[in-house]
Design a binder for these strands. Structure first.
Length: 287
DNA sequence: CCAAGGCCTGAATG
DNA sequence: ACATTCAGGCCTT
């Protein structure tokens, strides 16, 4: 009896805490035991029933409910490691974020850590974003590209981002000047989107994969940061042996191809479960 | 194409 | 205390 029940998973549940605390988003906070988060020019609130309420009343599928999660989980569950991660963190979802905020967030993330990323992004929002009030709480929307493009490098540096300030300014500039079409990037292929955003300084393979997975609808993106490399070495050394110690651009590309070959078109979900599991194993802090 | 070094910052470590 | 290391990379040489 018990065995039968354990086989019948409820795939539809969403674990909000796990989803938000998985390194995807940074401008989220709990007020009165509920999550609120800045998402571009909007503030989102997770209600008690687990629904998303938008400050701007925009329609968002923040938790990607339209994904066929059962199919995805079955598709990525290739081995005992992923099966365990999925089982343990069932309800963890890939979040669909505002592309510009996501882009800047992950430029800020490079060579950094979650606490510092969060700190910097909060300062950026507060300094350059519009103040709004939602449920008697104060929020600062994420600055628009055109506004961020106007400010000086030093003003950006005062947010604690260091040398990344140049990248941020230049990124904002390009989004404005080249009229970067995020809606198009959401629809085009992984390769094409990657090629496009990697032109922006401060965006390499890893940052690009984060932006694509978390805001551009590219579920085969599989960000390979230090943690994921460690995970591959620990659990998948037979499948994805690493030839060099430092992952060069070419190596990254080859590795990603092998990974998609193995985990399939929803590999990004596998990455998120594995990342979450391993960080929890090491009791790393989240937001 | 690969390897090595530098880079802002602040929390953690010694 | 104070110095060093390290953290969810990227870029240049």
């Amino acid at each position: 009896m018990k065995k039968l029940q354990s086989k019948m998973q409820n795939y539809q549940i969403i674990n909000v805490d796990n989803s938000i605390n998985s390194g995807q988003v940074f401008l989220w906070k709990k007020y009165n035991d509920r999550w609120y988060g800045v998402n571009g020019q909007d503030v989102l609130k997770i209600t008690n029933s687990g629904n998303v309420k938008s400050y701007q009343n925009t329609k968002t599928d923040f938790f990607r409910k339209t994904d066929n999660i059962e199919k995805i989980i079955k598709s990525i569950s290739k081995d005992p490691v992923t099966k365990k991660a999925v089982k343990h963190y069932l309800g963890l979802r890939i979040l669909e974020q505002d592309p510009f905020q996501c882009l800047i967030s992950f430029i800020v993330s490079s060579n950094s850590n979650i606490q510092k990323i969060k700190n910097s992004l909060e300062k950026i929002s507060k300094k350059f974003g519009t103040k709004v009030e939602f449920d008697n709480q104060e929020f600062f929307l994420f600055p628009k590209p055109e506004n961020l493009a106007k400010v000086s490098i030093n003003e950006i540096k005062s947010c604690g981002v260091g040398y990344r300030a140049n990248f941020i300014k230049e990124a904002a500039n390009r989004v404005v000047l080249e009229k970067m079409n995020f809606e198009y990037l959401k629809k085009c292929s992984y390769q094409e989107a990657k090629k496009e955003i990697c032109q922006i300084p401060g965006i390499g393979n890893k940052v690009a994969d984060c932006i694509m997975l978390f805001s551009l609808n590219k579920l085969e993106a599989f960000p390979l940061d230090r943690w994921m490399i460690r995970i591959l070495e620990k659990y998948y050394s037979d499948k994805f042996y690493l030839e060099t110690k430092t992952i060069t651009e070419k190596q990254y590309e080859i590795l990603h191809e092998k990974i998609v070959n193995y985990f399939g078109p929803f590999a990004g979900y596998a990455q998120q479960f594995l990342f979450k599991m391993e960080r929890e194993n090491y009791q790393k802090k989240w937001l």
